[in-house]
């Protein structure tokens, strides 16, 4: 086994246990409320977002601790990168599988756990196919993880000033874009486009993930510890 993958196995808590405990706890609270208020009006909740945030956080924080450690103990930068890619794909696949199975149970088997709750089955609005849902969850989860990882990579390569520049640029870009969107009144068309072409959007996200991964590799190859 790649020693870097073995190292990530010691981070089960951050990769799997904590995100899933949080998610299931959030689910239990939602279910409890639905039961208590006996609401069968179809409760929509965004509790599932927490697992995506966890992936993002893991993508930043785990390398902070493990990259300098690994390099310090004679691990090749490329091997570190490959290990990180492998673990992010494996964890995303496992979580995506559980999410899509829960979604299937929720919508198809239990009728929203008996209370018409939409906790896991948010993607049903686009497509109820479980395989399709697995694919979407998987792509979104890896995207979150790689977004965290590229931020870490910029930090490790360019330090604090690099971080500062990154955020300045991001803020500028977002401001300009939102001004343009407002000025030309693109907001509504864009949301309509997304609603009608969810698959295309996901492909764009997948492309972005690949670019993040490639950039992270190039940055880490030149990173000092």
């Amino acid at each position: 086994m790649n020693p870097v993958l073995k190292m990530h196995m010691k981070y089960k808590l951050i990769w799997m246990i904590l995100p899933w405990t949080t998610l299931l706890f959030s689910f239990a609270v939602n279910l409890l409320i639905a039961v208590l208020v006996n609401d069968k009006g179809g409760l929509y909740t965004g509790g599932v977002a927490s697992i995506f945030i966890f992936m993002f956080v893991a993508g930043i924080t785990i390398p902070i601790q493990t990259f300098p450690f690994s390099l310090g103990l004679s691990v090749r930068r490329k091997d570190y990168f490959l290990g990180m890619m492998a673990v992010s794909l494996i964890v995303s696949a496992i979580s995506a599988a559980i999410l899509s199975i829960f979604s299937f149970i929720e919508s198809d088997l239990t009728g929203g756990w008996g209370y018409k709750i939409h906790f896991f089955s948010l993607l049903n609005a686009f497509n109820t196919n479980i395989i399709w849902q697995f694919g979407i969850f998987f792509i979104l989860l890896t995207h979150m993880c790689l977004s965290g990882f590229i931020i870490y990579s910029i930090y490790q390569r360019f330090g604090r000033s690099g971080m500062l520049w990154l955020f300045v640029l991001l803020v500028l870009l977002l401001t300009v874009l939102s001004l343009l969107f407002t000025y030309f009144q693109w907001w509504i068309p864009i949301f309509q486009w997304i609603a009608h072409h969810p698959n295309l959007l996901v492909l764009w996200i997948l492309l972005a993930s690949c670019i993040y991964a490639a950039l992270s590799y190039l940055l880490l190859r030149k990173a000092a510890v």
Binding site: P3, K6, M7, K10, Y11, L13, Q65, T66, P68, F69, G72, L73, V225
Partner: peptide, 15 residues
Amino acid sequence: QKYPDIFRIADVLDL
């Protein structure tokens, strides 16, 4: 030399 905070000494040696 940095070691991940959450590791035990045994984890470091194992790796």
